[in-house]
Design a binder for these strands. Structure first.
Lengths: 114, 114
DNA sequence: CTAATATGCAACTAGGAGGTTGCATAACGC
DNA sequence: GCGTTATGCAACCTCCTAGTTGCATATTAG
């Protein structure tokens, strides 16, 4: 009962939480911040955001659940850093969509011309 | 009072609604569907989704507001299609993030080694 | 003209997301 | 040991989002 899909729909759906993680202004700023600083503690990431530490903590957990960031405990603080592999997954999925779109266009064009 | 940003944060934030649009299973399936079919009416896009036509209509509006799709009226139906330019914007932003991440890593590595 | 088709609009509901405050716990510095 | 710092956990609030149903409107077919 599976529909035929020209590119793996199930794998594509894996990136839904990843895109959702990127689809929030606070979180996208955190991504930028982590790019600049490499890795940083919650306290450090909170400064300048205008929201509380707990809010940032929640955002980081969302990002972690989507695989976008990971953390390591060091002493009394937890250091967060980007997981670049996951970013590349997202890029790859967008590439696949674009390619498929092009292919679909070409197919339609051919269909019309025949 | 603007913070210095190594890559345009304001432009980056433009893609927040775009990522949010992609961060939903129903909508990402619609993207795939539009890739396959080129352009399609609401009624057509609704079949097989398990939700009502109005739900799909709302999703399409969200996607439209983020620039991901556009529509044209033809007779009594409205045809929707992907806006590939916007997809490429998203890819470009992910590329920028990745590059910045690499640069940040290199900077940190150099700092540690010195 | 009339019936069927395709969509738009509005009101409503349920649930989740983003945010807060308050308290608990663990690790440093002295 | 003790105060300070950094985080975790839980309860709570608010609002937006995804979904529904019901009705209105426009267009096509016959």
């Amino acid at each position: 009962m599976r529909r035929a899909d020209p590119f793996a729909a199930s794998e594509m759906l894996d990136s839904v939480p990843l895109f959702a993680a990127l689809g929030d202004a606070v979180r996208l700023k955190l991504v930028v911040r982590l790019c600049e600083e490499g890795s940083a503690s919650i306290r450090r990431l909170t400064t300048g955001t205008g929201v509380t530490r707990q809010a940032i903590s929640k955002h980081l957990r969302v990002m972690q659940d989507s695989g976008l960031v990971r953390s390591t405990r060091r002493g009394r603080e937890r250091l967060w850093q980007l997981n670049q592999q996951r970013l590349q997954d997202a890029r790859r999925h967008l590439d696949l969509i674009s390619q498929q779109w092009d292919a679909g266009l070409a197919r339609l064009r051919k269909f019309v011309e025949e």
